[in-house]
Design a binder for these strands. Structure first.
Lengths: 330, 330
DNA sequence: CCAAAGGTCGTGAACGTTCACGGAGAATTC
DNA sequence: GAATTCTCCGTGAACGTTCACGACCTTTGG
């Protein structure tokens, strides 16, 4: 900046004014400076700016479970939403599911002077100790449980699960099995609970419950075992996500049971492939784009009026009916 | 830092030494300072450190096409590899496929004083103008074509495509159709070329060529049309990725043509679901983890010895044989 | 007992900005 | 014609670090 100033015979302050598009500078000098800057290839140093102004246009994102569809989707959409704002985003993945790792991640982001942190923590962890970390650090929890009050954006997982369960009940299914994911995962817990609750309000007993690790492979193995252990004990299977549903479908068809004629199958997530599986998968869609936008907006709100009490926003998922579910067999 | 110094009665320099784990400070004072720092919750300001030391431990990543399997996978694995280094990563997605957008992205990252840039540019763009931008900015091109010499890491897409084509030829297929992706995509072009080359070296003529947009939906539509237009003109179909292969499979089965008995199908990518499709998909696997590691390592090399001539590293994909391919029908 | 060496700590300057001022000249007002 | 306002620009200080250097005190060697 001083170089530019020297080069054009004005003071650094004037250069600063031009860079930031502030008033109080003659049009002629402004254009002259702009020209020189683009010739030299001047790039303002955001780092120095942050240092002195004590403000930042970078938001930190901490995520876990990248590799899974949901977390990845969230990551990508957050980046998108932040970019639309003209800000930058700094990611910090965590390796293991420990409080210390999270603390480390938040600390790292704070060291980089981020304006705020978006944190997506899909697993159950005792977060009491995080409370002090977040003291006067703007923070938005995305679809995560925090033991203390924090601004948050949720997808109503339970509601989504109820939708799909209700759909099957409406199709006169009575014995509905559930393929759940490990309950340390928040989404796994809530989806499972929604399933149970909806059954209860229809005065139905849950069918057999099995568990796998979100993957197609896991869903395949678990379902295969279920079929050989308790054949004919259910007419529908709800899976906690689409990948496991895919594995389940494969296991069921290997046992030569027709889908959906004898067994209906439903998933959760609406991965892009879901419509082209065979049969096309009935599932629940979460609007990740809105989730991203809402989260960023929530963070911005917090930056504008810091004192405000934590607010929750919730996104309702929608049921996508396809051919993998039909009326219960007689 | 000055606060810590005042609090413990030493100079800021001593505090700095403790923070950075440098020698020349007595064990007693070191422990005392460490204690005070953890009590107060002191976090070093990376921003200020960067400013004065003119060094940075942040690498920038610019990507395009998030949402697709490959780009997303690369993004996630890069984050992982950078983290293992103890560094941080700043992402910068680009909205449209223009040179200006890319320039903007690189500029933004430079403004943030990143140590170097990893750039994954899966589409064909005239990058002449980028040359000046990258002047003495360490840069690694990931599976991207740069018109000027840059350090790069590639996946041998062509080779992968040849592998799968050779596999089908070995199964005595003679009329092999190809479902390609739009040729502005680098991977689409190379995979298609590999297909053609392998056929040529076996003195075979390519079967019908169709095109779609990487998606299951696109693959479905294109294949459906192909079947109705030219029924029986091919005994195998190679797809440029797994999602399109999935769509193709669905279209073929809707036409009641058995897979692989009458038509063999192969994909590319080995998405986690590929093994659980029906039939399980023969495909080509790219090792994204290695790609990430190699890229970061390449960037580091460049930081250590700046003057060195650009080097290329290549990753060989591997063929994954599954049940969707078999001998050509008589 | 003195000089050299080693261990421990402090001082001033710099990094590239922004912020709160203040000042010179031109234009306007009464 | 003097006082006021407005337009444009510059100065000093600060942000939280690191770096190069120097100073003091203790130990070691002859």
């Amino acid at each position: 900046m001083t170089d530019i100033a020297a080069l054009s015979g004005v003071s650094y302050q004037t250069v600063s004014r031009v860079v930031n598009g502030m008033p109080d500078v003659a049009d002629t000098t402004r254009e002259r400076l702009l020209k020189i800057m683009s010739e030299v290839g001047y790039r303002p140093n955001v780092t120095a700016r942050q240092l002195v102004s004590q403000r930042s246009s970078v938001v930190g994102v901490v995520t876990f479970g990248t590799g899974l569809y949901g977390p990845t989707q969230i990551m990508v959409n957050l980046e998108q939403s932040v970019k639309e704002l003209g800000w930058s985003v700094m990611f910090c993945g965590i390796a293991e599911e420990s409080v210390n790792e999270i603390r480390r991640a938040v600390n790292e982001l704070c060291s980089h002077q981020v304006a705020g942190v978006l944190i997506h923590l899909p697993i159950q962890i005792d977060l009491q100790h995080l409370k002090d970390i977040s003291r006067n650090l703007p923070l938005v929890a995305i679809d995560s449980d925090f033991s203390f009050k924090a601004h948050s954006v949720f997808v109503n997982q339970e509601q989504g699960s109820r939708l799909v369960t209700r759909h099957l009940i409406a199709l006169r299914h009575v014995r509905i099995a559930y393929l759940r994911a490990p309950l340390i995962w928040r989404a796994a817990r809530l989806r499972f609970r929604g399933f149970l609750k909806e059954l209860e309000s229809a005065r139905l007993k849950p069918g057999p419950i099995i568990e796998a690790d979100w993957s197609a492979r896991g869903g395949f193995e678990a379902t295969k075992e279920l079929i050989s252990a308790k054949p004919g004990e259910f007419t529908a299977l709800v899976s906690a996500n689409d990948q496991m549903a895919l594995g389940a479908i494969r296991a069921i068809e290997e046992a030569e049971i027709p889908i959906p004629a004898r067994i209906s199958v439903a998933g959760f997530d609406d991965i892009p492939e879901a419509a082209y599986l065979r049969p096309p998968l009935t599932t629940v869609r979460q609007d990740f784009a809105s989730l991203g936008k809402l989260s960023v907006q929530c963070l911005l709100d917090q930056l504008d009026n810091p004192g405000r009490a934590p607010r929750n926003r919730t996104i309702r998922p929608t049921l996508i009916e396809r051919a993998s579910t039909t009326f219960a067999p007689k």
